[in-house]
Write a protein that binds this DNA or RNA. Structure first.
Length: 478
RNA sequence: GCGGGUGUAGCUCAGUGGUAGAGCACUGCCUUGCCAAGGCAGAUGUCGAGGGUUCGAAUCCCUUCACCCGCUCCA
């Protein structure tokens, strides 16, 4: 019990820290805030960019077989008709008049209309009532006394053009994936790609979720990191296994505690209609295990749907191979797709929660400290440069020069001369800055600075001329 | 959307009808100079918002917005 309270506490403390230090603010706060919308402050924007940049680097830049795409958020409405989002996103919801649970009509237990069913009402009394013509009962208590079905379209709609009308209704994308399918041949042909290959995209998606919860975990406007990997049918199982492993490892490599991560295969009844297999990368959030990323074997479902709906062939033509069925060249086929689809904003929350640590008071620090043990690669600021004494212009000038040198090498670093040195270290600990360089009298005499490590507060002296290299190596190699 | 809870300074919170507060944080100066040191001075509030009751509302009533917990959905 006490543990649950402290876990709850951790989330609340993180939300406070996010606001206090400028990671995340509530959107439009001075107007009372807007549901589920959040803004990323000076440190938050750096962290989020580092997360997506590291994803891009690992998925696109460090591979021969994956290329990038940045597609428009508004797409032709037929795309969503073909993908099934226009239908599938209008889930009829029903509320139980007895237990007040809200559930999806299409997932409710079916019953023959007119059947007398016995269930317990709100006062737990046994009641009998006939099943309505709709032919289902409450998925929770079994009551047939239900509200009307109400359709909820989960896509945001707007109009393309100044006059609002049915004909020019368009939608904000509910996922980035469809742009990769629609552009499949454009990318493949322009870049002379051979199967297997992937198309990656990072960007915002929008869903009118029924319930939003858990800070930035589930919001109506969110950021995705998705990659569609096109493979020859038959090799899909192997690639599915490959990407499951690779994606889990990505989080581990960026410092998430492996004991807080797991791969959870979907149950058969949980699988989306298009998927042959799906596994979620889950993180142990304060409220329980929850999804960071889904890796799905989408088969040729999407390309087939778009091929049918658009009337354009989306097949790969391999002139050097014979069709296994006819024995003739070329071999034409629709590739299968393995999709690792990650939530970037969810990853940000996981990185923050996993890094959040409170140290009790110790000999060196009587107040204890709050420290974000972020991996150096995702840390918003890599190095803080601090003159030991503000009054000495020689020290401040030297420190500022060092910061400039870091900037010149593309390393985000920060200059701070305000308050005592201990207080400045504490501020950087809360910001997750892995390294502090302190410029003191010795610096001017022998061109050395102390480097102080966030995680264990250890200090050592290094040559100023090597500072950039040392920090860069620690950021890149750790 | 349903049920329960919360909303007062940047953060954590006290304040149950009678002059809006504390700690930390923040700004300036002095002292100190390697882990949130001390002193002096200072600034800071639509008491979430709107309406009502009252001589008087942070406090009572109504409406609304946002957040948290459960149900539900998803990356």
């Amino acid at each position: 019990m006490s543990q649950e309270v402290s876990v709850d506490d951790r989330m609340n403390k993180l939300v406070s820290l996010c606001k206090r230090r400028g990671f995340v603010f509530q959107s439009s706060e001075i107007y009372g805030g807007l549901k589920s919308c959040y803004d990323y402050g000076p440190l938050g924007v750096e962290l989020k960019r580092n997360v997506t940049d590291n994803w891009w680097r690992s998925m696109v830049h460090e591979r021969e077989d994956v290329v990038g795409l940045d597609a428009s958020i508004i797409m032709h409405p037929d795309v969503w008709k073909a993908s099934g989002h226009l239908d599938g996103f209008s889930d009829p919801l029903v509320e139980c008049m007895d237990c007040h649970v809200r559930f999806r009509a299409d997932k409710a237990p079916r019953m023959e209309p007119g059947t007398e069913v016995t269930f317990r009402d709100a006062k737990k009394k046994k009641v009998t009532a006939p099943v309505l013509d709709r032919g289902y009962v409450c998925s929770d208590c079994g009551s047939p006394r239900l509200s009307e079905e109400r359709a909820f379209n989960l896509m945001f709609s707007t109009h393309l053009g100044p006059v609002a009308s049915e004909e020019n209704t368009v939608y904000l994308r509910p996922e980035t994936a469809q742009a990769m399918f629609v552009n499949f041949l454009n990318v493949q042909q322009s870049y002379r790609l051979k199967i297997p290959f992937g198309i990656a995209q990072v960007g915002k998606s929008f869903r009118n979720e029924i319930t939003v919860r858990h800070f930035i975990f589930r919001s109506c406007e969110f950021e995705q990191m998705e990659m569609e990997f096109f493979v020859e049918p038959g090799s899909d199982d192997e690639w599915f296994e490959y990407w499951k492993k690779a994606r889990l490892q990505w989080y581990v490599d960026l410092g998430i505690d492996p004991s807080n991560l797991r791969l959870r295969p979907h149950e058969k009844d949980e699988l989306a209609h298009y998927a042959k297999g799906c596994s979620d990368v889950e993180y142990r959030f304060p409220w329980g295990w929850d999804e960071l990323e889904g890796i799905a074997n989408r088969t040729d479902y999407d390309l087939r749907k778009h091929q049918e709906a658009s009337g354009k062939k989306l097949e790969i033509i391999d002139p050097n191979r014979e069709d296994p069925n006819t024995g003739k060249r070329p071999f034409r086929y629709l590739p299968y797709v393995i999709e690792p689809a990650a939530g970037a904003t969810r990853a940000v929350l996981a990185f923050l929660l996993d890094a959040y640590d409170e140290e009790p008071p110790s000999e060196t620090r009587k107040d204890g400290r709050v420290v974000l043990r972020l991996h150096p690669r995702v840390a918003p600021i890599k190095a803080a440069v601090l003159p030991l004494i503000k009054k000495d212009e020689n020290l401040t000038a030297r420190a500022r020069a060092i910061v400039k040198e870091f900037w010149g090498h593309g390393i985000n670093s920060f200059y701070d001369e305000k308050d005592s040195i201990g207080r400045r270290y504490a501020r950087q600990d809360e910001a997750g800055t892995p390294f502090c360089l302190t410029v003191d009298g010795q610096t001017l005499e022998e061109e050395t600075v102390t480097i102080r490590y966030r995680d264990d507060m250890r200090q050592e002296r290094i040559e100023v001329s090597q500072a950039v290299d040392i920090v860069r190596k620690k950021v890149m190699e750790s």
